[in-house]
């Protein structure tokens, strides 16, 4: 791949990730930008990258950027959080308390130390999903499922911050580590829907199947 490099003593390939999912979190929607030295067919690039990456890291689509930064198009992210051994009613009560609150202060350790910030304001939608067979093929134990759409803000509010918020407002303590999946991220419509950030580069037409 004719990747472009930064100038300087130790040139780095020009790759930037927009709003990468935290470690330990699954994702169906990650986006990155690659700077190239020469034009290539996006389909060829997709196939070459996909072939070099590990099983489970699948490159689904590539488009030629038509301008503007990718990061600017990531306005919100939608997450699905599976909470094994949590009763759906308990989650429902916690979600209701969270929604009713104007502000929910949570703490997280960051590289700069312990920070306290509001986890409520960035949450656009939060709901309890009806259980379906778990996509990760987990065993059939009671499992509450949280669906949450969070606006991209600074400091970023991640699914674990929302879970911290549920603990703060309702004492919800998942007994086992939750399974978190990012379902989508992109621009936000006035109706609160997330739009694929690459759509703007697809000449208005929907190329992908989704």
């Amino acid at each position: 791949m004719p990747v472009a490099y930064s100038q300087g003593f130790t040139p780095h390939p020009k790759i930037s990730y927009a709003s990468a999912a935290p470690t330990g979190v699954a994702s169906e929607a990650e986006y990155l930008e690659i700077g190239l030295q020469a034009p290539v067919d996006p389909a060829d690039l997709r196939a070459a990258l996909d072939g070099a990456l590990s099983p489970g890291l699948d490159v689904l689509d590539a488009v030629v950027a038509t301008g503007g930064s990718l990061a600017d198009r990531i306005e919100a992210s939608s997450w699905r959080v599976e909470l094994p051994e949590v009763a759906p009613e308990a989650l429902r009560a916690a979600v209701d308390a969270f929604t009713a609150a104007a502000e929910v202060q949570v703490e997280r350790m960051t590289k700069q130390g312990r920070r306290t910030f509001d986890a409520r304001g960035a949450v656009i939608a939060i709901d309890v999903a009806t259980p379906t067979p778990t996509p990760s093929g987990g065993p059939a134990v009671p499992c509450a499922i949280l669906e949450v759409v969070v606006r991209q803000v600074t400091p970023s509010v991640r699914p674990d911050d929302v879970l911290s918020g549920l603990r703060v407002v309702a004492g919800l303590e998942p007994p086992v580590p939750p399974r978190v999946i990012r379902l989508a991220q992109g621009t936000l419509t006035a109706q609160g829907e997330i739009v694929d950030p690459l759509d703007a580069d697809r000449d208005g037409a929907t190329i992908g199947e989704r």
């Binding site: 389909a43 099983p55 699948d58 689509d61 093929g137 992908g208 199947e209």
Partner: peptide, 18 residues
């Protein structure tokens, strides 16, 4: 162009991955 099917990790029979 269609979205290619994802290649999932083939779990070996004696895998401890799960």
């Amino acid at each position: 162009m269609s979205v290619p099917s994802t290649t999932s990790r083939p779990a070996a029979a004696n895998s401890v991955w799960s």
